[in-house]
Nucleic acid binder design. Structure first.
Length: 505
RNA sequence: GCGCCCGUAGCUCAGUGGAAGAGCGGCGGCCUUCUAAGCCGUUGGUCGGGGGUUCGAAUCCUCCCGGGCGCACCA
């Protein structure tokens, strides 16, 4: 028997109708608690007018337990109204892990590689979007029951790192930073200290990530992976041209071939694509069923490259998944600024966090779908932050915490036979949406569904709070249970996007 | 030129085949009772445009317009 009340109801109605029925939640509450389009979908194959079929199916659905009434609406929707008993039963199912664990029967080992910014400077706001998005996807997958590992890939070899070190060295010699070098203030700070600046940069990045609440399990180094290239060469489809070694990726679905080892006059060193090959193999051979890459929109072409090298190496390319997100544009007072780490006119993630806090930053960055470019006006960010919906959701959580504190609520769930107030029904209904929403967000790699849902849930709670007294009411025990359930789901939503659930505000 | 993404309310954006939404902004109300970071009412949209598929399209296909990003022996 399905675990969730809505799934059970769906199964019962499907049996009554004799077809697979999907229940949806009408946006308009006057259309009932649930609705189904089954009549419209099957009208054609049955060869009957949709509304006529709907009327017949509605009568049968009306016989199902917990269905109070049905009506045919519009072109053939069947709207259902459910008995209070359904909602009370549904509420009793909300507990630890509610809405998660859907993959428990077939869990996968998933690696999510994210951020992976060049260690040539502090993390920027664009990297924060990578992390906020990737980490939320990782949290959703873990919530679903998968074994998730987060990894950061350091491009600690190659031209960019050489330029970075050269910039620091130049300053130490009292010379100006080369034209193509790194010019930010942080380079001066590093130059003032002894030793290789790279380890200090790595430590700085890891500190920022921790502050941003992304906990990496492992770090991969390009410099180490590169060294294993010779053992891979026999497995690769390559050829020489113009003195360089090329991977024949075009034969495996990519748009073109790419140099993996530079010609002698360019140094004869491996390109980052060579490291890509070793790294991809390394990931899959470590036992991950799936390797997820989180990349900015400027890397969209590399999705084909990864698929191509997976095929070249004989792996199932479906084990490689690339998640793309669009850029973050920063404006100051409405004026767009071209941002570049090398030019030094950038906004660091740490500065953003100083200004708006981790909660608002993470919410803001994950709130938009990954396909949507983000514009942040830094001058407005700080003052707007108090209006950020994240506080609306957190406030609902804190309000519940206050009620539970005041009531000293420790009892178990108590069912009630009282007629549910409208606000109680709507709040419980919203709770029953959560399992569907969480799973869809995970399947679609769309964590933005979670903040959108959390706002609606907080909305229902605030309304309930306003209309229904908890402490001292005849239904206190039941309502405390409703509060606890709501608090759990809100806390879960906040956690899924890396935001804290405060007890007080 | 080729490829990827976007165009929904004044602003920022949800909504990936089912009955157009939220926040902010604007206007007007509600605190002797569990947190007013709240609640209620109101204002506001030819879903960029044309054509197509479908019982049904913001959503899928196609063309056009507008914007972002890519097409390195940088990463």
């Amino acid at each position: 028997m399905p675990a969730q009340a809505v799934e059970r109801l769906q199964a019962q109605i499907s049996a009554a109708v004799g077809a697979d029925v999907e229940l949806e939640r009408p946006k308009d509450a006057s259309h009932g608690d649930f609705a189904t389009n089954v009549a419209m979908r099957s009208a054609k194959s049955v060869g009957r007018p949709p509304r006529e079929l709907a009327a017949e199916l509605a009568a049968r659905i009306g016989e199902v337990d917990d269905v109070d009434s049905t009506e045919v609406a519009g072109p053939g929707f069947i709207n259902l109204r459910l008995a209070d008993s359904f909602f009370i039963a549904a509420l009793s199912e909300v507990g630890d892990g509610y809405g998660g664990g859907w993959a428990a029967a077939a869990p996968e080992r998933v690696q999510v590689e994210m951020v992976s910014a060049n260690p040539t400077g502090p993390l920027l706001v664009s990297h924060a979007r990578n992390g906020a998005y990737g980490d939320s996807v990782a949290r959703l997958l873990a919530f679903g029951g998968h074994a998730v590992q987060r990894e950061y890939y350091y491009n600690d070899a190659g031209a960019q790192v050489d330029r970075f070190r050269a910039s620091v060295d130049a300053l130490r010699r009292g010379e100006p930073v080369p034209e193509d070098g790194y010019h930010g203030d942080y380079v001066r700070d590093l130059a003032a200290q002894d030793g290789d600046p790279l380890p200090r940069m790595l430590a700085s990045i890891e500190g920022t990530l921790e502050r941003f609440r992304i906990n990496f399990d492992s770090w991969a180094l390009q410099s180490e992976l590169e060294q294993r290239l010779p053992e891979f060469m026999p497995r690769l489809d390559t050829y020489e041209k113009d003195g360089a070694v090329w991977a024949r990726s075009s034969a495996y679905g990519d748009e073109q071939d790419w140099v993996i080892i530079r010609s002698a006059d360019k140094g004869g060193t491996p390109t980052y694509r060579a490291a890509d090959i070793v790294y991809l193999t390394d990931k899959l051979d470590r036992g991950f069923d799936k390797a997820v890459y989180v990349l900015g929109a400027d890397h969209h072409a590399t999705a084909r490259w990864y698929a191509a090298i997976a095929r070249m190496l004989g792996y199932d390319e479906s084990r490689v998944e690339v998640l793309l997100y669009q850029f973050v544009h920063l404006t100051g007072g409405g004026e767009a600024a071209k941002l570049s780490k090398r030019a030094g006119n950038v906004v660091f993630l740490d500065e953003l966090l100083d200004q708006v806090g981790v909660d608002a930053a993470r919410w803001y960055l994950v709130n938009r779908g990954p396909d949507q470019t983000i514009d942040i006006d830094l001058e407005l960010a700080a003052e707007k932050s108090n209006k950020n919906p994240v506080y609306y959701v957190q406030y609902a959580h804190a309000r519940i915490a206050a009620i539970l504190r005041n009531a000293d609520a420790s009892g178990a769930f108590v069912a009630s036979r009282h007629k549910l107030e409208n606000e109680e029904r709507e709040l419980i209904k919203r709770l029953t949406d959560f399992p569907v929403t969480a799973r869809e967000a995970a399947d679609r790699r769309g964590p933005q569904l979670i903040p959108a849902y959390a706002i609606r849930l907080a909305d229902e709670f605030h309304r309930f709070y306003h209309e229904c007294r908890v402490i001292g009411s005849p239904e206190e025990a039941f309502r405390l249970g409703l509060c606890r359930a709501t608090q759990q789901v809100i806390a879960r939503c906040l956690d899924l996007v890396g935001v804290e659930a405060p007890e007080r505000m």
